[in-house]
């Protein structure tokens, strides 16, 4: 494997008493697209937040280019964060400014570029996600899919070294899905950016990812290049890739057996 940008070593994370990750290790190679898949609610968003240093693990290391994220001081953490960006699952556009200003925001914050250059950069990113015509709109005037694309444009505004995409394809029609897939690919190939893509869309992920991790039950249950994943015989992995609801991967949030609960209710 090539050089590694993010290296997670034996990391354990708990929400209250519930273990989300139990000593997992994974590494994200530089300049590649790494996909993270797994059932809903398993902690994929949590993983991205851990990499971004917004929450701290119980134990273990999260190394970003040699810096151990949980150990960094506040100032160092902010320095490191300048090298990454994140597309939030909810988009998280700033509602008090227009689409244009949203995308210009990180550029204005972190560079001293003139407004002329900023305008060119912003329009370029908006064009890439097909929203150049929507630059004057407010986030509240966008559809769900448009808002996600605007957020995507914002997260790539500064072409940071590492981009964490939380479900970039959610809510997109097939055409814009294709556009986004190509955009992520281009960023990786042309600029050598490292991408981490969290997604459930198996075919899209398979088409762009260089390496895939599948997470379930607090652990990594499968990893490899797309071909390796397809070839894996593990029933867990096969169930996920093929999208079967019946199988070893539980579709439900941990709960008492359904029948028991129903009968328990009835007897009360």
């Amino acid at each position: 494997m090539s050089e590694i940008l993010v290296d997670i070593k034996n990391m354990t994370f708990k929400r209250n008493e519930r273990v989300i990750y139990d000593g997992i290790s994974l590494s994200i190679p530089k300049g590649k697209i790494t996909a993270i898949m797994g059932p809903s609610g398993i902690g994929k968003t949590t993983l991205l937040r851990l990499i971004g240093g917004q929450i701290k693990p119980e134990s273990g290391q999260i190394l970003f280019d040699g810096h151990d994220i949980p150990q960094l001081s506040r100032n160092d953490l902010y320095e490191v964060r300048k090298r990454m960006s994140m597309l939030f699952q909810s988009g998280a556009l700033f509602t008090d400014m227009s689409v244009y200003d949203n995308i210009a925001f990180p550029i204005r914050e972190h560079t001293e570029l003139s407004e002329d250059i900023i305008e060119k950069m912003v329009l370029m990113k908006l064009e890439a996600v097909g929203l150049r015509g929507a630059r004057g709109l407010r986030p509240s005037e966008l559809s769900g899919g448009m808002a996600r694309r605007a957020a995507l444009a914002r997260s790539i505004a500064l072409d940071p070294e590492l981009i964490l995409y939380d479900e970039p394809f959610a809510g997109q029609d097939p055409i814009s899905m294709g556009v986004i897939v190509r955009l992520i690919q281009d960023l990786g190939q042309a600029l050598g950016l490292t991408s981490v893509v969290v997604s459930h869309d198996v075919p899209e992920v398979m088409s762009i990812a260089d390496y895939i991790y599948i997470i379930a039950e607090q652990k990594i249950i499968g990893q490899g290049t797309p071909e390796e994943i397809y070839r894996q015989t593990s029933p867990l992995v096969q169930q996920f890739v093929k999208g079967e609801s019946d199988g070893p991967v539980p579709f439900h949030f941990p709960a008492a057996p359904y029948r028991e609960e129903l009968i328990g209710r009835g007897s009360k």
């Binding site: 937040r49 971004g52 917004q54 902010y78 320095e79 964060r81 300048k82 990454m84 960006s85 994140m86 939030f88 909810s90 998280a92 556009l93 700033f94 509602t95 925001f105 990180p106 914050e109 972190h110």
Partner: peptide, 11 residues
């Protein structure tokens, strides 16, 4: 709406 988180992630 995660705007604060998103600011943090933008350093």
């Amino acid at each position: 709406t995660e705007q604060l988180s998103s600011l943090e992630m933008m350093a």
